[in-house]
Amino acid sequence: MTEVVLFIIFAAVALAGAIVMVTAKNPVYSAMGLLTTMFTMALFYILLDAHFVAVVQILVYAGAVMTLFLFVIMMIGVDKKEDTAETIPFQRGLTVVIGLGLAGVIIMAGRQAWITGNTAFSAPDLNGTIETVSDALFGTWTVAFLATVFLLTIAAVGTVALAMFGTPQLRETESEEGQ
C-alpha cells in the first residue's frame, strides 16, 4: 500500500517535471524540470528494490550529465530570446497523436509481457543489488563489458591524442581562438 501511495506521488512529480521541461520558456527551468524527472526516476528504481541502479541514476544523470547541461546553458547565456516559431505544420497535433500512440503501445506491451514479473512490490531485498549487477557484468557479460571499456578508453585517448598531436595548423587556429 505504501509503495502504491509513494508511486502515485512520485509519478505525479515526474510528470510535472517532464511537462515543465517541455513547456518552460527559460532553458534553466527546463533543465530543472528534467532534473526533477531524473531524480524521481531514481525513486522508482528504489521502489523496485534496485538501489544500485537508483544511486547510479542520481550519480550519473542527475549529478554529472545535468550539471554539465546546466553549466553549458549558463555559459552560452540564456538572455538571448529563443526563436520559438514553429516551422513544421500540424506539429502540435502530430505530437499528441504520436505521444498517445506511444503510450498505447507501452501499455499494451506491458499487459502482454510483464517483464519484471508480478513481484515488483515485494519485500525489500537490500543485500544483492550490487552483487547481482557485478555478477552479470563481470561474469556473464565479461567480453561485452570489456569491449565497452575499450571503446570508451579509445574515445578518451583519441580525444587527448587529437588535442596533443593534431596537425600544427589546427592547433594554431585553436590557440588563436583561445586568446
Binding site: 532534473l35 538501489h51 544500485f52 544511486v55 547510479v56 542520481i58 550519480l59 542527475a62 549529478g63 554529472a64 545535468m66 550539471t67 546546466l70 553549466f71 549558463m74 537490500l126 543485500n127 544483492g128 543489488t129 550490487i130
Partner: peptide, 19 residues
C-alpha cells in the same frame, strides 16, 4: 548497501544549489 555511492550522489547534488 550502496552507502558510499549514495554519499557521492548526494554530495554531487549540492552543486546545483550553488550554481
Amino acid at each position: 548497501n550502496v552507502g558510499v555511492l549514495y554519499v557521492l550522489a548526494m554530495s554531487s547534488m549540492a552543486v546545483y544549489a550553488i550554481a
